[in-house]
C-alpha cells in the first residue's frame, strides 16, 4: 500500500487525518472535483450554444457546408473527415495515456516515459490541427455579403449549384476608397481592415453575371438552405450593406453572427485545455525522466494528469457531436 498510516484504533483516528476517504487520495479526489466543475463550465457553454441554435433554428449554418477542408486536398469538398481524424488522434493519445498510467502501477519507468511522450505528441498534433482549422475558418473561402437586416447572402452558380467566390465575379470599379487610419483621424480611431471588394463592385458584378443566384440563411423543411430565383436574388442583393470575407467576432461569411462567436469560444476554450494539458504532461514527463516518482514510490501523479487528459478527450467528444454532427 502506498502509505504507512494504518489506523491503530479505527474509531478514534477517523478525524485525525492520514486516512483516505472513499479509498482515494487527496490529490486524486481534488482532480475529480475540478473535473466536475470544469465539466459544468463546458456544459454551460454547449447549452448556451444549443439555446442560440434553437432560437435561430431555421437559419443556423450547416456544419457540413462550413468545415469542408482537408490538408493537401485543395478544392475537394471533404466535410467532417478532418474533424473525424482529429477525434481519432485525441482518442489515441488518450489510450497511450492509459497505458502510461497502467505502466506506472507496475513501476515501469521507461514504459511510462515512452507512452507519456506519445501522449504529448498526440496532444501537440491535435492543437496544431485545431490551429489549421481556425486558419481556414478565419480566412474563409468564398466570401459573402451582409444585408441591412444582418442576413448573410452567399452566391451560387444557378446551373451547377456550386458556391462562387467573390473574386470570380466582382466587377472592377476604379475608385479611391482609402482605409481610414488613426494618423488621418481627428481622434485616435481607425476603421477595420477593408474587404478586397467594395459593395458596389460585388453588386455590379452580380448584376452582370446572369448565372448567379443568392443562397439565403433560411433553411427549408428538408434541411437545405433556401436558394432564391434570379429575380428574387436581384431584389435581395440591393439591400447589401457589407462585404464579408472569412470570420471574426463581429460577422462571418457562414451565416449567423453567433455561430462564429461560439465556434471561437468553445473550440478555443477546449484548445486552451489541450494546450495546458500538453504543458502539464511535459512537466510530469520530465519528472518521470529524472526519477521523481521512482523515488516517491508511486506514479500517482501520472494517474492524476491522466484524469485531466481523458477529461479533455471527453469534452472533445461532446464538442465534436454538437458542433460538427448535430
Amino acid at each position: 500500500m502506498s502509505t504507512t498510516t494504518v489506523p491503530t484504533s479505527t474509531e478514534d483516528n477517523v478525524w485525525s487525518g492520514g486516512n483516505k476517504p472513499l479509498n482515494s487520495s487527496y490529490g486524486k479526489m481534488m482532480m475529480w472535483f475540478f473535473i466536475v466543475s470544469d465539466a459544468l463550465t463546458f456544459s454551460g457553454f454547449l447549452v448556451a450554444y444549443g439555446f442560440s441554435r434553437f432560437k435561430n433554428i431555421d437559419s443556423w449554418p450547416i456544419a457540413d457546408e462550413v468545415f469542408t477542408h482537408f490538408p493537401f486536398l485543395h478544392g475537394v469538398d471533404a466535410p467532417m473527415y478532418y474533424v473525424a481524424l482529429m477525434t481519432f488522434i485525441l482518442i489515441f493519445s488518450s489510450v497511450t495515456m492509459v497505458i502510461a498510467v497502467d505502466a506506472g502501477h507496475h513501476m515501469k519507468k521507461t514504459k511510462v516515459a515512452v507512452y507519456m511522450l506519445l501522449t504529448i505528441l498526440g496532444g501537440a498534433v491535435f492543437v496544431g490541427s485545431q490551429a489549421w482549422e481556425w486558419k481556414n475558418f478565419i480566412n474563409g473561402e468564398y466570401g459573402a455579403v451582409e444585408t441591412k437586416g444582418g442576413q448573410i447572402l452567399q452566391f451560387l452558380d444557378a446551373e451547377t449549384g456550386k458556391r462562387v467566390a467573390l473574386e470570380d465575379f466582382a466587377a472592377t470599379i476604379p475608385g479611391d476608397r482609402v482605409q481610414h487610419e488613426s494618423k488621418n483621424g481627428l481622434w485616435f480611431y481607425e476603421e477595420a481592415e477593408l474587404p478586397s471588394f467594395t459593395v458596389q463592385e460585388v453588386v455590379t458584378g452580380f448584376v452582370n453575371h446572369e448565372n448567379l443566384v443568392v443562397k439565403t440563411e433560411q433553411i427549408d423543411e428538408s434541411g437545405h438552405k433556401i436558394v432564391l430565383s434570379r429575380e428574387g436574388s436581384l431584389q435581395k442583393i440591393n439591400q447589401t450593406q457589407y462585404v464579408v470575407e472569412g470570420a471574426n467576432l463581429i460577422r462571418n461569411e457562414y451565416g449567423n453572427r453567433l455561430f462564429a462567436d461560439f465556434f471561437f469560444f468553445i473550440t478555443g476554450f477546449h484548445g486552451f485545455h489541450v494546450l495546458s494539458g500538453v504543458i502539464i504532461n511535459c512537466i510530469i514527463f520530465f519528472n518521470v525522466l529524472i526519477g521523481t516518482y521512482e523515488r516517491r514510490g508511486n506514479y500517482e501523479m501520472v494517474e492524476k494528469v491522466g484524469l485531466y487528459w481523458h477529461f479533455v478527450d471527453l469534452v472533445w467528444v461532446f464538442v465534436f457531436t454538437f458542433f460538427y454532427l448535430v
Binding site: 472513499l22 466536475v36 495515456m97 492509459v98 481523458h310 471527453l314 467528444v317
Partner: peptide, 19 residues
Amino acid sequence: IAWDFMHLRDEKSGLTGSI
C-alpha cells in the same frame, strides 16, 4: 471514456456517485 480510461469502474461507488 469515464469508466475505463478514467478508471471509474475501479473506484468506490461513493466516489463514482459523487462525481
